[in-house]
Amino acid sequence: MKKRTPVSKIMTTNLISVNASNDVADVVQIFKENNIHHIPVVSGDELIGMISKTDIDRISYVNSYATEAANAVVYEMLKLEQVMTSELETIQAEDQIKEAAELLAQGKYHALPVMEGKKITGIVTSTDVIKYLLEQF
């Protein structure tokens, strides 16, 4: 097994990001259209948060009788900054995959923004780490 492989080898680099002025409903649509689970929230080049499908599920009216209209009302009431996670754990592109695995194993997050200095260049998820480990066997 390669022990010193950097996160940059397994991270997703074709990022879709949003900014805090985006509506929650816009973000929901981005999730649906792109089949992704995490979206960085940026202000210019600065990473200010991360929004996940789980964050959206928490605010959605989760009930078998819920209508899309009920969820739309909830989405309109909230700003993206109220829904996103703003205290993030990040990792540098040159850090080892083992370090990402250790952070993800703590269970607080399922994705880590990958940074080069202060600029986000990718995302590494628990799924990326598992796929990497499977390739090693």
Results as ranks from 00 to 15, higher is better:
110 H>A: 12
18 V>W: 03
47 L>W: 00
83 V>F: 11
3 K>M: 03
47 L>S: 02
17 S>I: 09
84 M>G: 00
61 Y>K: 13
94 E>C: 12
18 V>S: 03
2 K>R: 13
110 H>Q: 13
28 V>W: 03
13 T>S: 15
123 I>M: 05
115 M>K: 04
44 G>T: 00
90 T>D: 02
84 M>P: 00
36 I>L: 07
97 I>M: 09
105 A>I: 10
67 T>A: 14
24 V>M: 11
104 L>S: 01
10 I>S: 02
78 L>Q: 09
26 D>C: 06
122 G>D: 05
43 S>F: 01
1 M>K: 13
12 T>S: 14
62 V>F: 09
38 H>C: 05
3 K>P: 01
107 G>H: 09
47 L>I: 05
42 V>M: 08
80 L>M: 08
14 N>K: 15
96 Q>A: 14
41 V>L: 05
135 E>A: 14
25 A>N: 13
46 E>Y: 02
130 I>Q: 14
116 E>F: 07
95 D>C: 14
109 Y>E: 10
82 Q>V: 02
113 P>T: 06
132 Y>F: 14
20 A>P: 05
45 D>W: 02
69 A>I: 09
72 A>R: 07
34 N>Y: 10
128 D>A: 04
44 G>E: 01
53 K>F: 04
30 I>S: 09
121 T>F: 06
79 K>M: 11
85 T>F: 00
130 I>V: 15
95 D>V: 11
79 K>W: 04
114 V>H: 04
135 E>Y: 10
65 Y>H: 08
64 S>W: 02
76 E>K: 15
103 L>Y: 12
83 V>Q: 10
123 I>V: 06
94 E>Y: 13
7 V>P: 03
121 T>P: 10
56 I>P: 00
25 A>D: 14
56 I>A: 00
87 E>Q: 08
104 L>I: 02
130 I>N: 10
83 V>M: 07
104 L>Q: 03
57 D>C: 11
96 Q>N: 15
36 I>H: 05
111 A>C: 11
130 I>K: 12
110 H>I: 04
46 E>A: 08
68 E>Q: 13
17 S>Q: 08
126 S>V: 06
83 V>K: 09
63 N>W: 03
15 L>V: 01
108 K>M: 10
55 D>E: 13
49 G>F: 00
34 N>D: 07
61 Y>P: 03
88 L>S: 04
26 D>Y: 04
40 P>D: 07
107 G>D: 07
39 I>H: 00
114 V>I: 08
103 L>P: 05
14 N>G: 07
1 M>W: 09
78 L>Y: 12
134 L>W: 09
112 L>K: 05
114 V>F: 05
21 S>L: 14
82 Q>G: 12
91 I>L: 09
105 A>H: 15
93 A>K: 12
28 V>K: 06
131 K>T: 07
136 Q>A: 10
43 S>D: 12
61 Y>A: 10
55 D>K: 12
133 L>H: 10
102 E>N: 15
53 K>C: 09
116 E>T: 13
55 D>C: 08
8 S>I: 03
24 V>N: 06
84 M>A: 02
86 S>I: 01
35 N>L: 11
109 Y>T: 07
7 V>D: 01
15 L>F: 06
8 S>M: 06
58 R>A: 11
110 H>G: 15
53 K>H: 06
13 T>E: 14
59 I>D: 00
115 M>W: 05
9 K>M: 08
3 K>D: 08
6 P>T: 10
73 V>E: 13
15 L>C: 02
82 Q>K: 14
